[in-house]
Design a protein around this nucleic acid. Structure first.
Lengths: 207, 207
DNA sequence: GGGCCAACGTAATAATAATATACAATAATA
DNA sequence: TATTATTGTATATTATTATTACGTTGGCCC
């Protein structure tokens, strides 16, 4: 992977490029110029070229970008060519909803276990998944080589969960609890703050 | 509401301040200085003061900010003192998960209907909610004075749904479909791109 | 009540990111 | 082989965001 510091702004745009390219590919388009992308995506053409060039020259002068090739390259940059083993912590509504999210699996994120502290939640869910107790988490992570944990606990439990997961060697946390969990350097965290987004919507509504 | 352009970055921080203040209030703290907040939140103290001053001088020199007062002010700025009526479009996993999200209701977002195009989904859900057909959406929105719609459809249907909702007079859209829906000026959209966030996590993992 | 101090409010500055412009290099095409 | 399109890249400009610096104000103590 390229090492010189790439700005977070660029990185956050990569998934958008990826989505766009997937759509174009589905639509049967096999060639795109930066100016075409620019019009479709509402970004500056030169910014697009610059973004892509952070990772290498994927285009061809006088021709443009091959949709399939570029999509594959971005997938590689994002690490979507890998497979990740994932556990979910918290078998509430969100946890269960994510459990059934088939499209994650397609992209290489395989949910192999869901855990909860509440004994009432233990046992079989629809579709054959089983909810385990938290006491079995450590050994499960060790035995199954888990890469990513999704935190779907109430906010009170989130930081404790994160600490626990990190101590088990988890390297990536996808956090749905409405707190900013703190982890040591070397562990990646992405937060989905649902209510933050809803509040911003509310703000926009009363402007 | 203050009119001079306030930067999106500031607005996105407001929910975070709100969360932080709620926690401090719960913890029984009634006074905070910007430098204390700065340490807790990992933001620059002066940035905090500037952010808050976009909306008015809520602090007191030589003293700091009253937690309760500041929290109330931010709630007002975000429009959380209002009540919103909300419909969900799409009764799949995410739609159903959001339907049961009690905490939204506490903050003034009341989900009053859930709709789906699939006849197989019609009928009663657990907890007494009923899934309606899309053909009844127009009249439902008109009769119930709906403010916000949550789009939980597959990506193919999202833009069509958005168009439909806007034509019914909906002013705010909370979009969970993995596309950027386009709406006319005057309609607010907030996107939750779950997979974008997951992809960024994946990127961070293979850095 | 006067001086001191804490912490705000805000102006000035610096850093980051986005946009625009330009152009040589190069592959496709006719 | 000439033409054309479009990249890759440099540079400049503008906009946005964050940081530093400091004057101002109100509370508090002696």
């Amino acid at each position: 992977m390229i090492d010189e510091k790439i700005s977070p702004a660029v990185i956050r745009r990569l998934p958008r490029y990826y989505r766009y390219l997937s759509e174009m590919e589905e639509a049967g388009i096999d060639k795109l110029s930066s100016s075409q992308m620019s019009m479709d995506m509402g970004l500056n053409a030169s910014q697009i070229r610059r973004d892509l060039n952070c990772f290498g020259g994927f285009g061809q002068q006088g021709y443009g970008y091959s949709v399939t090739k570029l999509k594959k390259e971005i997938a590689r940059i994002l690490g979507l060519n890998k497979r990740y083993k994932v556990v979910i912590i918290g078998a509430g509504r969100i946890g269960q909803a994510l459990l059934g999210y088939r499209s994650f699996m397609l992209e290489g994120f395989e949910i192999v276990g869901i855990f909860d502290s509440d004994p009432a939640k233990m046992g079989l869910l629809p579709e054959g998944h089983e909810v385990f107790g938290l006491e079995s988490l450590d050994s499960f992570i060790a035995e199954n080589g888990i890469d990513i944990a999704i935190i779907c606990t109430p906010k009170e439990a989130a930081q404790k969960s994160a600490d626990h997961l990190v101590s088990c060697g988890i390297k990536g946390i996808w956090n749905f609890a409405p707190v900013d969990v703190a982890v040591r350097r070397g562990v990646a965290v992405e937060n989905i703050h649902l209510s933050d987004s809803l509040y911003v919507l509310s703000y926009k509504l009363c402007k």
